[in-house]
Amino acid sequence: MVRRAAAAAVVLTAGMTASPGHADPGPFTGMAGTWGGGGTVALEDGSTERIRCRANYGVSGPRMTLVLTCASDAYKFGLQAEVIAEGSAISGTWSETSRGINGVLQGRGGGGNFQLLATTAGFNANIALATRGKRQSVSIRADSQFRAANISLSR
């Protein structure tokens, strides 16, 4: 279950970046709509799996909601999140809907670059996010059962 929560936290955070070029002053400007992509997840035992994701974002100024569905060859999960930005501080909650797992997100960022911490009981993950135009990248390092993930999303 921790492994699935870790993978869920990885892909969940992929949507928490900003895209420049729109009049809306919120940090999630340009995120609204559907995004898709994939990448790899490396587990503690050294194995890796490909992961595919589709995300739907609702954005209103400094607030964002996310509904995310991801799948690898071994499992499928669904995530929901609500976050808010106050200046450069980002905070919110996430839940993995099919397994009833939830936690908090917090961190700092702006200008398309964010550093976040995702937590739940028995799990902590450091997440680096970067957005360039219509492409997003997510890099994550976790402390249990899950070592790393690299994910790319695009519109």
Rank of each mutant, 00 (worst) to 15 (best):
V2G: 08
R4V: 11
A6S: 11
A7R: 01
A8R: 01
A8N: 04
A8Y: 03
A9G: 13
A9K: 03
V10R: 01
V11R: 00
A14H: 01
G15S: 15
M16N: 04
M16Q: 10
T17P: 00
T17N: 05
S19K: 10
S19R: 14
H22A: 09
H22K: 12
P25A: 11
G26E: 09
T29S: 15
A32G: 07
G33S: 13
T34M: 06
W35D: 01
G36R: 09
G37H: 09
G38R: 05
T40C: 07
G46T: 06
S47D: 11
T48L: 07
R50S: 11
R50T: 14
R50P: 05
R50V: 07
R50K: 14
I51G: 00
C53P: 04
C53I: 10
R54G: 15
A55F: 03
Y57L: 08
G58H: 00
G58N: 00
P62Q: 12
M64V: 13
L66M: 13
L68S: 03
L68W: 00
S72D: 07
K76S: 10
K76V: 12
K76G: 08
F77K: 07
G78P: 02
G78N: 12
I84T: 12
A85P: 03
E86I: 08
E86G: 08
S88G: 08
S88P: 10
S88K: 14
I90H: 01
I90S: 01
S91C: 03
S91R: 14
S91L: 06
G92S: 04
T93H: 05
T93R: 08
W94D: 00
S95C: 02
E96T: 02
E96D: 09
T97W: 07
R99T: 11
R99G: 06
G100Q: 09
I101K: 03
I101A: 09
I101P: 03
N102P: 03
N102K: 05
G103R: 00
V104Q: 09
L105Y: 01
L105T: 02
L105S: 00
Q106E: 11
G109Y: 11
G109F: 10
G110A: 07
G111V: 01
G111H: 05
N113I: 13
F114H: 13
F114T: 09
L117G: 06
T119L: 02
T119R: 10
N124F: 04
L129S: 10
A130F: 03
T131I: 05
G133R: 07
G133M: 11
Q136S: 12
V138R: 01
S139K: 13
I140T: 15
Q145P: 00
Q145M: 08
R147H: 09
A149E: 02
N150M: 04
S152I: 11
L153Q: 01
L153V: 01
S154N: 14
R155G: 02
